[in-house]
Simulated scan of single mutants.
Amino acid sequence: MFRWIRAAALAAAVAAFVPAAFASFACAASLGDDGLHKEDWFSVTFRDVAEDIEAARAEGKRLVLVFEQRGCIYCAKMHEQLLSDPEVADFIKAHFKVVQYNMFGDEEVTDLDGEVLTEKTAARKWGYVFTPTLVFMPDDVPESVSAGKAAVATMPGAFGKWTFLNMFRWVYEKGYEGDEHFQKYHARIIQELRESGRLQGE
């Protein structure tokens, strides 16, 4: 009798766990034909930077471009450890429109100055050599300037959760227009997290 009860309890636990596990996998980034990780909330556009800035603004958001490449272990880390974190993903989804670029891709890109490029020639023109590189665009479309020069901030590489998330928060709050440099802003937020008990040791 007790064996039957234990078996029934185990079966119930497994039944409860399996859907949750599959739901977790369902939310994970998928790998595209180009070898890049894909979040289902990334925006698929024609990569006209001016149009994308306007589209983001119409949604009450900011535009961020993310350069990645096939086989990039740091890109994988960004997706698996950072963008899979609900606190990080929810903030970005609420405030930013994210458009993915392939560092060595051939898809057409229209720069803010009107020049038609490919993803790989855009990366060269704008001076990006690391993946991932996140490029934060202004909330208004500037005139006669390339996207590389118009960017209000760039973040090359995959960092820890709070550096990553705080950069998005700093840009959203337009910290680049004020006197508090990002590093000062980040240090202040880390101290506040420590004092609140949410962070230990970072």
Rank of each mutant, 00 (worst) to 15 (best):
F2D: 07
F2H: 07
R3H: 05
I5G: 00
R6S: 07
A7F: 09
A9E: 01
A9L: 15
A11D: 01
A12P: 04
A13Y: 00
A15H: 04
F17G: 00
F17T: 03
A23P: 00
A28Y: 10
D34A: 06
L36P: 03
L36N: 11
H37R: 13
K38H: 14
K38Y: 11
W41K: 09
S43F: 13
T45C: 04
F46E: 12
A50Y: 10
D52I: 04
I53E: 05
E54F: 01
A55T: 09
A58K: 14
E59C: 04
G60F: 12
V64G: 07
F67P: 01
E68G: 12
R70C: 01
R70Y: 12
G71H: 11
C72P: 12
Y74R: 08
M78H: 06
Q81R: 13
L82W: 09
L83E: 13
S84I: 02
A89Y: 06
F91E: 05
A94K: 14
H95T: 02
H95R: 14
K97M: 15
V98H: 06
V98Q: 05
V99G: 05
G105V: 06
G105W: 10
E108Q: 13
T110H: 03
T110R: 15
D111L: 04
L112S: 08
G114A: 11
G114P: 01
L117F: 11
L117N: 10
K120C: 07
K120R: 15
T121R: 10
A122T: 06
A123C: 09
R124N: 08
R124W: 04
W126K: 02
G127H: 06
V129L: 11
T133C: 12
L134N: 08
V135W: 09
V135K: 03
P138E: 12
P138L: 12
P138W: 11
D139F: 10
D139S: 14
D140I: 07
P142Q: 11
A147F: 05
K149D: 15
A151K: 05
A151W: 03
F159I: 00
W162C: 00
T163H: 13
T163A: 08
F164N: 03
F164W: 03
F164T: 08
N166C: 01
W170S: 03
V171K: 02
D179K: 11
E180V: 14
H181M: 12
K184T: 14
K184N: 14
Y185H: 10
R188E: 14
I190Q: 14
I190A: 13
E192N: 09
Q200M: 06
G201V: 06
